[in-house]
Design a protein around this nucleic acid. Structure first.
Lengths: 177, 177
DNA sequence: GAATGACTAGTCAATTATGACTAATCACAC
DNA sequence: GTGTGATTAGTCATAATTGACTAGTCATTC
């Protein structure tokens, strides 16, 4: 009855955040979209969907907290089963290696459908976007604790990517000389 | 009326393959799952779905070819509008930089929920899987033409990833000394 | 000649994900 | 006092994707 569907990482992430301390939805979604965008892509409706599903399964509890007249917060907490599931997902995640896919390679594969000069110009734009991203990451304030690792991860892949892209551009511009 | 849905790369890929020469479905799906797995994740039902949709939109034509008693092949060909769309998608793909996401980072973020020795052992397994993948890629026969670039891409990201992972393992094993 | 596996076609129900929307409260600027 | 934007909640129709299945032919092996 293992649950291979509903990409586990998303559930792991939500469970992990709630485990650190009880949280409410908006807070998590906000945090994920800002601090953790480099790890997963998780939008609000999906988050609420998973949160409800995990509550139904018995991994979470929901409690409405109302402070003054503010719209009420729905606070999520981990149940013992939730903790078990968290442990399981965490172990699996840590032990597994997933390699990335590179949708950008598809364009490269078909690049010779374009005049070479045009392809090179478009790739130059891609390169500029990569550099911009790199600058952005370098300029970001240091992230606290473990998050530093995620930033480092992005940084090192950007560097690798730039090297590869420069090779591609170089090869392409030399072709047929 | 641009079509941002149905992740463009998948359409670009199908259009590009059909553009090279007319193809039938099985052939493409097979090729994508073996040679192009590092670029996209595209399963059969999705492929047929997109192929039908693009035919309905007028980018492709379908012709059934029957040789002898063999089950018929459905051969796809590009229409002029298909060619236009291919050009558009190709230009966009080449000019765009997309950074990867790293679902594996989620586990790392929560690694201290586990005894350190256990976390390290699990990460060692991840590392072994990465190395295995690396060996596999190195051992693969040289790919023809442009596909070499995609292999190179994977290779360089695996190297980067290994470096990062070793840092993480190292940091983690030193913590609290 | 029976079985197996590669080649070819698909389908369908179910799962997974999101864009775009509504709604309410509060703090602050103008 | 009137906006405007942040904070909190969500929903719903639709899009996107896939696992698991059916179905037929051909070549080859036992």
């Amino acid at each position: 009855m293992t649950n291979h569907t509903y990409r586990m990482e998303k559930q792991l992430l939500l469970l992990g955040l709630i485990r650190q301390r009880s949280r409410h939805g908006y807070e998590m979604v906000d945090y994920i979209e800002t601090a953790l965008a480099s790890c997963v892509d998780l939008k609000k409706p999906t988050a609420y969907f998973l949160l409800d599903k995990m509550t139904a399964t018995g991994w979470l509890t929901q409690t409405d907290q109302r402070e003054g007249n503010r719209p009420s917060k729905r606070v999520y907490e981990l149940t013992p089963q939730g903790e078990d599931e968290f442990q399981r997902l965490l172990q699996e995640n840590l032990a597994t290696f997933n390699d990335a896919t590179f949708p950008g390679d598809i364009g490269v594969i078909f690049a010779d459908a374009l005049p070479r000069a045009e392809a090179l110009e478009l790739l130059a734009r891609r390169r500029a976007a990569l550099i911009a991203r790199q600058t952005e990451v370098q300029a970001a304030p240091p992230h606290p604790g473990v998050l530093q690792w995620t930033v480092e991860h992005v940084r090192c892949h950007l560097t690798a990517d730039l090297g590869w892209l420069d090779n591609v551009i170089n090869d392409l511009s030399k072709r047929g000389e």
